[in-house]
Amino acid sequence: MQDFEGQALSEYLYQVIIGAFTAIGFIWGWWCQDFAQTTYVTAAGVVLACILCLPAWPFYQRNPVQWLRKEE
């Protein structure tokens, strides 16, 4: 189970990785004059972001949610 701060970190990392790889891919593709290069670099960023952000890695679980106990 992830905590809310871990979910926020995961979302932030995902956006930064995708944004950075898209910008780098655009510049690289423009330099090479090949749109396929842009697509490849962006796809590599998506794969990296999925590997880092989708699994429940331990560094996302530093602040677990403390649930209230059931009153009887």
Rank of each mutant, 00 (worst) to 15 (best):
M1D: 08
M1E: 10
Q2L: 08
D3I: 02
F4L: 11
F4H: 10
E5C: 06
E5N: 10
E5F: 06
E5S: 09
G6E: 04
G6H: 01
Q7E: 11
Q7V: 14
Q7L: 13
A8W: 06
L9T: 05
L9A: 12
L9M: 07
E11T: 09
E11D: 13
E11I: 05
Y12A: 10
Y12W: 11
L13R: 01
L13K: 01
Q15Y: 11
Q15E: 12
Q15F: 09
Q15S: 07
V16R: 12
I18Y: 01
I18E: 00
I18L: 06
G19L: 07
G19S: 12
G19F: 03
I24E: 01
I24D: 00
I24A: 08
G25K: 00
G25M: 01
G25A: 03
G25Y: 00
F26V: 12
I27P: 04
I27K: 11
G29F: 00
W30H: 10
W31I: 15
W31Y: 15
C32D: 12
C32V: 15
Q33L: 14
Q33P: 05
Q33D: 13
Q33T: 08
Q33R: 10
Q33Y: 11
D34V: 11
D34F: 10
D34K: 13
F35V: 14
A36K: 12
T38Q: 14
T39H: 14
T39C: 09
T39S: 12
T39Y: 13
Y40S: 12
Y40P: 03
V41N: 02
V41L: 10
T42D: 06
A43Y: 15
A44L: 14
G45Q: 01
G45R: 00
V46M: 06
V47H: 08
L48G: 01
L48F: 14
L48I: 15
A49P: 00
C50N: 09
L52G: 05
C53M: 09
P55G: 04
P55V: 05
A56T: 12
A56M: 08
A56W: 06
A56P: 06
A56H: 09
W57D: 00
F59L: 10
F59D: 03
Y60K: 00
R62S: 06
P64S: 08
P64K: 02
P64V: 02
P64W: 04
P64G: 07
Q66P: 03
W67V: 08
L68Q: 10
L68W: 05
E72N: 14
E72R: 11
